[in-house]
C-alpha cells in the first residue's frame, strides 16, 4: 500500500515536472521527435525494401519447356519426379498444356489470334510447360540443373544471371537498411540520454534537497524515470502522426506502387500501427533509460 502510494506520487511528480521545467522538456521532446522521425523513415524504408525483396523472390519462376510430342502419361510421371527434388516448391507447380498456352496467346492480341487460328489441328508448334518455383532461391541454379536431367525436359528458362544479380542486390539493400536503422536507434538513445542529462543537471539542487529530507535513492529516481517516459511518449507523437498520415498519403498517391507495378508498397494498415508501436516503444525506453542514467550521477556523494 505504501509502495503503491509512493508510485502514485512519483507518477504525479513526473508529470508535473514535465510542465514545470517546460523549456527543458521542450528541448528533450524535440530532440526525441527529430530523431524518431529519422528512425521512422528508416523503418518504413527498410520494411518496404524487405517486403519488396520477398515479393520479387516469390515471383521468380523457372519455366520448364517439355518436348512437343510428350504424352500425358509422361507428363504426370515427370511431375512426380520434379516434386521429388528437395528444393522444389511442390505446391507451386503448374502445368500448362500446348492448348492452354495457345488460348492464352490468342487472348493477348488480335494479330496473334489471326495467325494462330490459321494453324491446323495437330500443327501446334508450341511446347507444353511446367511453371516451377523453388523454396531456396540461392540454390535455384542447381535445382534447375537437376530438372534439366529428367527425361522429356527440353529446356529451362529462369532469367539466368539476372535473377542471381537481383537476389544479391536485394540482400545487400536489406542488410544495409537494417544496419542503418540499428545505428540510428543507438544514436537516438545517446542523444536523448544526453539531453535529459542536461535537464537533470539543472536540477541538481532538487535532487540534493530530496536527499537532505530523507528520500531514498529509489524514490528520488522514480519521478525522473517517469518523467523520461512521458518525454519519450510526447516526443513520439509527431513521428507517429507523421507515420500514420504521411505513409497513408504516400501510399494512396502512388496507388501502392513505386515507379513500376513490380515494386509494390506495404499496405498501410496494420503496418503503420505496428511502426507506431515500435516508435512509441523506442521513445519510452530511451527516455526512461536516459533519465535514470542521468540521475544516477547525482546520487553519489
Amino acid at each position: 500500500m505504501k509502495l503503491f502510494r509512493l508510485f502514485g506520487r512519483s507518477i504525479r511528480d513526473g508529470i508535473k515536472s514535465v510542465g514545470r521545467n517546460f523549456s527543458l522538456s521542450i528541448a528533450s521532446i524535440s530532440c526525441i521527435t527529430i530523431t524518431l522521425i529519422i528512425v521512422a523513415l528508416a523503418i518504413l524504408t527498410s520494411y518496404n525494401v524487405d517486403n519488396f525483396t520477398r515479393l520479387i523472390k516469390k515471383d521468380v519462376t523457372a519455366v520448364v519447356f517439355l518436348k512437343s510430342d510428350i504424352t500425358d502419361e509422361e507428363v504426370s510421371n515427370l511431375e512426380k519426379k520434379i516434386k521429388e527434388i528437395p528444393n522444389v516448391d511442390t505446391e507451386s507447380i503448374e502445368f500448362e498444356s500446348k492448348q492452354k498456352i495457345l488460348e492464352d496467346f490468342k487472348d493477348t492480341s488480335e494479330v496473334l489470334q489471326n495467325i494462330m487460328s490459321s494453324w491446323e489441328e495437330g500443327e501446334n508448334p508450341l511446347k507444353p510447360t511446367f511453371l516451377v518455383k523453388v523454396l531456396d532461391l540461392t540454390k535455384l541454379k542447381s535445382t534447375v540443373n537437376e530438372i534439366n536431367k529428367l527425361d522429356g525436359v527440353e529446356v529451362i528458362k529462369y532469367g539466368e544471371g539476372m535473377v542471381e544479380k537481383l537476389i544479391t542486390t536485394f540482400d545487400m539493400i536489406e542488410r544495409i537498411t537494417f544496419i542503418v536503422v540499428l545505428a540510428l536507434i543507438f544514436v537516438t538513445a545517446f542523444l536523448i540520454s544526453n539531453t535529459i542529462k542536461l535537464t537533470i543537471s539543472s536540477r541538481k539542487r532538487e535532487i540534493e534537497i530530496m536527499r537532505l529530507v530523507g528520500a531514498s535513492n529509489f524514490f528520488i529516481r522514480l519521478p525522473f524515470i517517469i518523467e523520461g517516459l512521458f518525454l519519450g511518449l510526447l516526443g513520439a507523437i509527431i513521428p507517429i502522426a507523421g507515420t500514420i498520415y504521411g505513409y497513408s498519403f504516400f501510399y494512396n498517391s502512388f496507388e501502392g506502387k513505386l515507379f513500376s507495378p513490380i515494386i509494390r508498397l506495404i499496405e498501410p494498415s496494420p503496418f503503420i500501427y505496428l511502426v507506431s508501436i515500435i516508435l512509441a516503444g523506442i521513445g519510452i525506453l530511451v527516455g526512461m533509460f536516459g533519465s535514470s542514467r542521468a540521475v544516477r550521477k547525482f546520487l553519489k556523494i
Partner: peptide
Amino acid sequence: RNGNVYKIRR
C-alpha cells in the same frame, strides 16, 4: 552506505 543515507536523514 550511500544507498542508506536516507535512514539517518529521516
